[in-house]
């Protein structure tokens, strides 16, 4: 079995700061990480590898420095890393990103064998759209299984996979034939630790690096800013609320404070007291 995992190297957004005056992002010194959601996809691929035997190829589109994240996946046990990088990809939205990645996946299929399963994360923490996975699936004609909480069965002979998909109000028990694109739900598994052996290998491993031309992209207008139908026109900071919070103060101990707060809440939200009686009253008769 051949499995490809798509990962993205993202700025650790917990550490992003916005310049208080210019409202621009201060990127300097912000460390990059593997998109946390993609680790669930990677771990699931590695589990399938452990169980059924598989080659796991990891793919990312990004700047040359994204090779660091790829190497990291090798320390966990991925077999091969592919970096798609080209200045023409700069400014890609999800449509352009899924185009470029689908071309790279075509090339991967050609060079290393057609993947039965492509994994992506549920979403990225920087783009946060959850669109790239479905975009790739549609372009490659892979059956799309999103928000997968569990892979319950793989039947290699029948070439089918059975999964539990988180839907609104319940869980779908689904079966599909290969090839499929799966987006893994967060917390669906726990990422393993890398091994020293893999780490040593990873440091030496060669990252397969392709540009637009190498993956057969002839029409560059489908890439980057030019290939992106969405346009970001304005970036701005959320406005503060006009009034500040009314601060409740009370003399005395904590009970006095609590009583004052209850009064203040009922004063601010006059309707709530009636609601509360309906909702909670029966507990207290």
């Amino acid at each position: 079995m051949h499995i490809v995992v798509c990962i993205k190297q993202v700025p650790d957004s917990a550490q992003i700061r916005v310049h208080p005056v210019t409202n621009t992002i201060m990127r300097q010194g912000v460390p990059t990480i593997i998109n946390p959601y993609d680790l669930f996809a990677l771990e699931e691929a590695l589990r399938l590898k452990d169980k059924f035997g598989a080659t796991v190829t990891v793919l990312t589109m990004g700047p040359p420095t994204a090779a660091d994240s790829l190497r990291k996946t090798l320390t966990f046990g991925a077999d091969r890393a592919v970096l798609l990088t080209d200045r023409y990809f700069a400014g890609s939205d999800t449509l352009a990103t899924s185009y470029a990645l689908s071309m790279a996946l075509g090339k991967i299929a050609e060079e290393f064998g057609k993947p039965e399963i492509i994994f992506t994360g549920k979403q990225t923490i920087d783009g946060d759209t959850a669109q790239v996975g479905p975009g790739i699936a549609k372009r490659l004609g892979y059956n799309q299984l999103t928000y997968i909480a569990r892979i319950s069965e793989v039947d290699l002979d029948a070439a089918t996979i059975r999964v539990e998909r988180r839907a609104e109000g319940g869980v779908q028990d689904l079966v599909s034939s290969f090839p499929v694109l799966i987006t893994m739900l967060e917390a669906s598994n726990e990422m393993r630790r890398g091994t020293i052996e893999n780490a040593l290998g990873a440091a030496r491993a060669e990252v397969v690096t392709w540009n637009a031309e190498a993956v057969g992209i002839e029409d560059l207008t489908k890439c980057g800013l030019r290939g992106s139908p969405t346009i970001v026109k304005k970036v701005f900071a959320p406005t503060a609320r006009a009034e500040k919070a009314e601060i409740v103060e009370a003399e005395g101990g904590v009970d006095a404070k609590a009583a004052a707060l209850v009064e203040a809440i009922f004063a601010k939200a006059p309707g709530i007291e009636g609601d509360l009686l309906e909702l909670a009253g029966e507990h207290y008769v």
Binding site: D126, P229, I231, V232, K233
Partner: peptide, 17 residues
């Protein structure tokens, strides 16, 4: 929508499609 991990908002258009 929020962008950059929610620290800012951005306004996005699809003008020509």
């Amino acid at each position: 929508r929020p962008t950059f991990g929610g620290s800012l908002l951005c306004t996005i258009f699809t003008l020509n499609f």
